[in-house]
Simulated scan of single mutants.
Amino acid sequence: MPFLAIEISEVNRGKLGTVLWIFNWISAGCGVFIAAMGIYFKISVESKMALIEHYNSNVLPLMLAIVGCLSVVLFLAGGKICHSSGQTHSRDKFKGFLQPYICVTLVLAILILAGGSMCFDHRRHLHHSFHRGIRSAMERYKDNTTFKTEIDELQMDFRCCGNNDYRDWFDIQWISNAYLNLQNQDVKEKMKNGHYLNDDVPFSCCDPRAKRPCIHHHITDNNQHYNYDFNVAMTIYQRGCKAALTDYFSVRLENMGGIIMLIFVAQLIVLIGVRYLQTSIYNASVSGDPTMSTPGWLMGDCPLNCGRIPKSVRDKGLKDTESKKTDVESGQDKVSGQGKVSSEPAAQTAEEPIYEEPPAEP
């Protein structure tokens, strides 16, 4: 028995073809959007590559770009196929492309689903990559101008400090020995394993919204500053940059993934519509009248044998054939019956005439 069968008239087949043509053009526009999202993500990640370790920034953008470009090409062609198949005068030329189009669109829908899933999965990859990358950049802060600039811009732009929080700077020597008086007793006291460690953070951690001048040296020593208690009010950012960057990209990846999932649902709707159009046209063809109302469905009697003539249409065709055969036979009987009636008088006239015996002579 067909699954979710719907009777579709010739007029509705034309309307369905037009609707699918519009949906395919919209889907082509969605393909452009998917490719654009891949390019946007690539540019965004590349701007922070100095802070990322062990992350391939090409995988997700390349996946989205390929899927987007394939979507544009496929759905532009699919719009033409669906619209022309819905019209009686052009149906014979394009209806043969409907089933291959369904198969290719199904594969593309799976790729779109994979792209959306990758967007959600890459949040986890970026989280670990930022953890390693930011920590590594902080350790090079004192000697490498490039990493120093990246870290300072990161902390000012994202209003963050350190990797997990500002205390990460306490375990890293971020001031070069060239700017330290190594003979100073205070400096010597703070040298640990050859590294100068103190409760200081770079100036880029300063929060401009703080009321008092920024305190980024001796942060946890209240005695070093007047009217200051670091437990009550600090003048630096307290949020870690790993969390700030992860949230920034996570929101964008979630939005991208959500949009791609909506596009995937739209592709399923297009697939269902094309399948109904294809099966209805096929059933009308095998019935002998391409313009008659026939059912369309998602799956026929045998889902694994799509080329098999559906039972309902096959039975209808057999009934029509038997009806025509009966009409022919009845016509032949009528003609032969008329022939017999007209031939009997002719047979009688062909026989010798029968006369009564004449009366005997007297």
Score class of each variant (00 low, 15 high):
Y226L: 12
R132G: 01
S136G: 10
Y355I: 07
K93N: 13
H131A: 15
K192W: 13
V232L: 12
P295V: 11
R212G: 02
V72E: 02
R275Q: 07
A77T: 09
W21L: 06
E254P: 01
P353W: 02
N164I: 13
I260D: 00
P310E: 00
P345M: 03
T220W: 11
I43N: 15
R13I: 11
R13K: 14
L111K: 08
P2A: 06
T88N: 13
V313S: 15
Y40D: 12
Q183T: 15
C306M: 12
L111D: 01
V59G: 02
V328Y: 08
N198Q: 09
N58H: 11
I22S: 03
G331C: 08
A210W: 05
L182R: 14
F130P: 10
V328P: 02
H217I: 11
L154W: 07
N164C: 10
I66P: 04
T235K: 10
L113D: 06
V274R: 03
F23Q: 11
N223H: 10
A28Q: 05
L64C: 02
Y276L: 02
K334S: 14
S84G: 03
L262R: 01
Q338Y: 12
G300L: 03
P202E: 00
D165F: 13
W174Q: 13
I26E: 09
T88V: 15
R252W: 13
C206A: 08
H125D: 12
H54G: 02
D143A: 06
G273A: 04
D152V: 03
Y282L: 04
I281K: 03
I272K: 00
L108Y: 09
L182G: 10
I309W: 02
Q332D: 13
N255A: 11
V45H: 00
N164E: 13
C161E: 09
K311C: 06
Y226K: 14
V265D: 10
K190Q: 11
M138W: 02
C160W: 12
P213H: 05
F3L: 14
S57A: 10
D186I: 09
R314D: 15
A36I: 04
V73N: 10
D221G: 08
R132M: 01
